[in-house]
């Protein structure tokens, strides 16, 4: 009897995780795609130099964005099974993908008037690593240099090409 109760409890958790996790992920992806379109005006690169402009740089500042996202119960179980058979753990792939894109968006939202963001760096880690009752959560920190350009083009002698 006790085994049965445990099994039912496990199944409830599993289905709740599946259902709510799926809904949350879909919603999140929709919002990410929509906001990515909205913030496309800020070109972002991981290169070190200001690119594709003949305007003068007015000022720069450090822009950061971060997010912590947790995986749902169903996906954790699936990932656990994957550990036995090997192969791509797709449930975690979408988790880190969502977290990174969200963090980049937050960085852009922190400097809405910037003209471009250069030298983008991403840092991924886990708060609760090494814990027994492991939280399958990922923490992403992105940072870059937001560049504000002046509205007038630079003189012909400017260094930037």
């Amino acid at each position: 009897m006790e085994v049965l109760i445990q099994l039912i409890f496990f199944l409830i958790l599993l289905s709740a995780g599946y259902l709510f996790g799926k809904i949350a992920e879909k919603k999140h992806y929709r919002s990410i795609i929509e906001r990515e379109r909205q913030w496309m005006q800020i070109p972002t690169s991981s290169g070190r130099h200001v690119f594709a402009t003949d305007k003068e740089v007015q000022r720069v500042r450090l822009a950061t964005g971060s997010v912590v996202i947790s995986v749902d119960y169903f996906k954790r179980i699936v990932a656990g099974l994957r550990n036995i058979f090997g192969g791509n753990v797709q449930s975690y792939e979408t988790l880190v993908d969502r977290a990174r894109r969200e963090a980049i968006l937050r960085m852009k939202e922190s400097c809405p008037k910037a003209d471009q963001i250069i030298n983008l760096r991403l840092e991924t880690s886990s708060i609760s690593k090494g814990q027994k009752n492991q939280v399958g959560s990922v923490e992403v920190l992105t940072y870059g240099t937001a560049v504000y350009l002046s509205s007038a083009p630079a003189a012909k002698t400017a260094k930037h090409s």
């Binding site: 709510f20 999140h28 950061t64 912590v68 995986v71 749902d72 119960y73 399958g136 959560s137």
Partner: peptide, 30 residues
């Protein structure tokens, strides 16, 4: 970590999604 935040994280662990408490924590420490 904060105990209260940890309880919320436990709940989120079942349903998935952003752990707002931890995001804030990360931001403050940064």
């Amino acid at each position: 970590k904060h105990a209260g935040r940890d309880i919320m994280a436990g709940v989120k662990n079942i349903f998935g999604g952003e752990l707002k408490g931890y995001t804030e924590l990360l931001q403050e420490s940064r």
